[in-house]
Simulated scan of single mutants.
Amino acid sequence: MNTLTKLTASTLIAGAVLAGTATAHADPAPPPPPPTKQQALDAMLAELGVAWAQGGAAGTAIGAVVGLGIGCVSMFPGSLAGCIIGAPTGATIGGLIGMGNGNPKVQQSIETYLNTP
């Protein structure tokens, strides 16, 4: 190969490399399509199942015991009424806290379900 051919080939390759890098770009990925109401419901129920298994049941049991104790003690003269009100209230609050701590994604899945048209 003579010198002129080598020089021409090198120049063409260098020019192609520079031109290729100057014009290359990538478009951002398109956003995923919004979920349907059924897909959002399925996702929410799956997250709720995980949350219940990872802390909801324990939170409910602990909340019921604490609510029962506080209700029975705080309304001493009418302690039966306090026990009846305290146990389900404590169970509800304990279940919600246990599920929220057991799976942090459960709140987002509920909001997604409620906001899906």
Rank of each mutant, 00 (worst) to 15 (best):
T5A: 05
T5W: 03
T8E: 07
S10T: 10
I13P: 08
A14N: 11
A14Y: 07
A16M: 14
A16H: 04
V17K: 05
L18C: 07
A19Q: 11
G20L: 15
A22M: 14
A22Q: 14
T23S: 15
T23D: 11
H25Y: 08
H25N: 14
A26C: 12
A26E: 14
D27Y: 00
P28D: 12
A29C: 05
A29M: 04
P30Q: 14
P30M: 00
P31D: 13
P31W: 07
P32N: 13
P33R: 12
P33W: 07
P34H: 03
P34Y: 06
P34T: 05
T36A: 10
T36H: 09
K37F: 11
Q38P: 12
Q38R: 13
Q38I: 13
Q39I: 09
A40M: 05
A40W: 01
A40Y: 08
A40V: 01
L41Q: 12
L41K: 14
D42W: 02
A43T: 11
M44S: 04
L45S: 10
E47P: 03
G49A: 01
G49H: 02
G49R: 04
A51F: 02
A51E: 02
W52H: 11
A53V: 05
A53S: 15
Q54P: 02
A57D: 00
A57P: 06
G59D: 08
G59Y: 00
G59W: 09
G59R: 05
T60Y: 06
A64T: 05
V65D: 04
V65R: 00
V65T: 11
V66N: 00
G67P: 02
G67E: 08
G67N: 10
L68M: 13
G69L: 15
C72A: 13
C72R: 11
C72Y: 05
M75W: 07
F76D: 09
P77A: 14
G78F: 15
S79L: 06
L80P: 04
A81C: 06
G82Y: 01
G82F: 08
G82Q: 11
I84N: 07
I85V: 13
I85K: 00
G86F: 06
G86S: 08
A87C: 03
P88G: 10
T89I: 13
T89K: 05
G90A: 01
A91D: 05
A91Q: 09
T92H: 07
I93T: 01
I93D: 03
I93V: 15
I93W: 04
